[in-house]
């Protein structure tokens, strides 16, 4: 994720797995581009526990320039409710290597986007029950106590859920022309959601598994993920596209 001042600083943040004494961890680090090569220049947060699945790692800047990171439960659901663990959380970080738990109770959040000051996150359910949540600071989004359409006192319900019979496997999300575009892996589509009505108004299909979407304000870009071992790659995969509108 390039810093907002990348043109001047040539700096970015990345989230990746590393090994230490034979064990795997995740790290959020700062990188700098110099003469065409990237080098790691600082560590914001290391020692993030990994798991076989859902332990990474969307990085996004809010519109006021703060860095957020999503961290999955690393296949240990109870960690999502443990305030001492960063797993199952959305974090907010600053350039002084400080972070705070911004929200908790997440299973496998992979998408972050803002509509003005309103923060949205996309999250995979355990089996179907995928969620689009509106994220409020210190709110608890319920995993593993509730998911999908389930409710409980003190726990947030999703803004939108795929329901108990449908799987999107939502990854990256972004706003474009007033709609929320949701990349779907297993759903093999880009779901288009009206943030006013919370209805899915379109489903762009035919490209296989979609990992991420991005609007630069003019065009809508998306990238496939058919070569990740769970898809059916075609010649030239994976591909970056711009949608013709």
């Amino acid at each position: 994720m390039l810093k907002p001042d990348f043109d001047d600083s040539q700096e970015a943040y990345g989230y990746y797995v590393y090994e230490d004494n034979g064990k795997s961890y995740n790290k959020i680090a700062e990188f700098r581009l110099d003469s065409g090569s990237w080098s790691e220049t600082a560590v914001l947060l290391s020692g993030i526990p990994t798991g076989n699945v859902h332990h990474g790692g969307r990085l996004e800047f809010s519109e006021d320039g703060l860095l957020y990171a999503t961290i999955g439960d690393a296949s240990e659901p109870d960690l999502a409710q443990d305030p001492a663990s960063v797993n199952g959380k959305i974090l907010r970080l600053n350039e002084f290597n400080e972070f705070e738990i911004y929200s908790l109770g997440h299973r496998n959040p992979q998408g972050l986007a803002w509509d003005g000051e309103t923060m949205y996150a996309a999250e995979h359910g355990q089996s179907a029950n995928d969620e689009i949540n509106i994220i409020e600071q210190d709110a608890n989004y319920g995993w593993p106590d509730i998911e999908g359409e389930e409710t409980a006192d003190g726990l947030e319900e999703p803004f939108v859920t795929s329901g108990a019979d449908d799987t999107w496997a939502p990854s990256g999300i972004d706003f474009h022309d007033g709609a929320l575009y949701i990349s779907a892996l297993r759903g093999t589509a880009i779901k288009v959601m009206d943030p006013e009505s919370a209805e899915i108004t379109d489903s762009i299909e035919g490209y296989g598994r979609i990992r991420d979407v991005y609007s630069d304000g003019n065009g809508l870009y998306f990238i496939t993920n058919n070569t990740d071992g769970r898809g059916t790659p075609t010649e030239g995969d994976d591909k970056l596209y711009i949608l013709n509108e």
Partner: peptide, 20 residues
């Protein structure tokens, strides 16, 4: 269901579009 133009191919998974 909606046409799109290819910008780049043969990208190794997993990749993310950089949003800055």
């Amino acid at each position: 269901t909606a046409p799109a133009d290819v910008i780049a191919t043969d990208l190794e998974a997993p990749w993310s579009i950089n949003k800055q």
